[in-house]
């Protein structure tokens, strides 16, 4: 960032001379400091996975969830500030509820992504507010099947087959690009998601972490829910095994 300290980064309502809004870019930095979050949309479902970095051994296992449900058929995973995330999740719930109370139908993925996009974008316009320090992954099911969107601090939202945010996003993206989305089933995607999170995890930086996995598929009756413990255990086993295999291959070389 060449123009740091030139005075154009004090307010979100000021452009720099080369057409950037630094506050939004800083918000992106906040996202990049967070544990990795990924989403995979396959033919028969969506999977969300998060590398939940634990700052203390004293934390109760499975507490402080980073993947949340917003209106039964929507799952929200995020990378960035958890406090901002909770606010956005509340907004997703309110929008889903509002849509349902008007149309008596579940809000489609496209609509919830757009409404959330508009909301987040509004926080890039005024000097009195700060943009959200989160990239939000929205997993959803509507009449067109399973859907996955990612929403940036700028308010930009894009639909994906697979996406990643947070610390390990480069590694994760490289791994996601290798997947065959035409063939992958949701059961396999859960394992792959676990493997990718474990691959993207940097042991040198953060020792303690917990894998969080959720899905929307026929097995959950197309509702968003965390994967059952046995599926999670299996996925973790798969991830650890494939990491060991990689290490062995490295040793041989």
């Amino acid at each position: 960032m060449t123009s740091i300290g030139t005075g154009y980064d004090l307010s979100v309502s000021t452009y720099s001379p080369d057409g950037r809004v630094f506050q939004v870019e800083y918000a992106q930095k906040a996202v990049d400091n967070s544990g990795t979050a990924i989403g995979l949309r396959v033919k028969d479902g969506v999977v969300l996975a998060v590398e939940k970095i634990k700052h203390s051994r004293l934390l109760v296992p499975n507490s402080n969830k980073r993947i949340m449900t917003a209106g039964k058929h929507i799952g929200v995973a995020s990378a960035g500030w958890m406090s901002d995330t909770r606010h956005l999740v509340k907004r997703v719930r309110d929008e889903a509820h509002n849509y349902h109370s008007i149309y008596k139908a579940d809000i489609p993925a496209k609509i919830i992504a757009e409404r959330m996009g508009m909301y987040v974008q509004a926080y890039t316009l005024y000097s009195s507010v700060r943009p959200f320090g989160v990239s939000t992954l929205l997993a959803c099911k509507d009449k067109d099947g399973p859907q996955l969107y990612m929403l940036e601090p700028s308010g930009e939202y894009v639909g994906y087959r697979g996406c990643a945010a947070g610390k390990g996003k480069q590694v994760a993206k490289t791994e996601i690009e290798k997947l065959n989305f035409e063939e992958l089933t949701v059961r396999e995607a859960v394992k792959e998601a676990a493997r990718i999170i474990y691959t993207a995890h940097d042991e040198a930086k953060d020792k303690l972490f917990e894998l969080e996995l959720s899905w929307i598929c026929a097995e959950t009756n197309w509702l968003h829910s965390h994967v059952p413990q046995d599926v999670l255990d299996e996925a973790v086993q798969f991830a650890e095994n494939s990491l060991d295999e990689d290490d062995e291959m490295d040793d041989e070389e």
């Binding site: 969830k65 949340m68 449900t69 917003a70 209106g71 039964k72 719930r93 889903a96 509820h97 349902h100 109370s101 509702l223 829910s225 965390h226």
Partner: peptide, 11 residues
């Protein structure tokens, strides 16, 4: 339905 959804979201 609203309260059921709300309860589900609590997870």
């Amino acid at each position: 339905e609203d309260i059921i959804t709300h309860e589900y979201d609590m997870d």
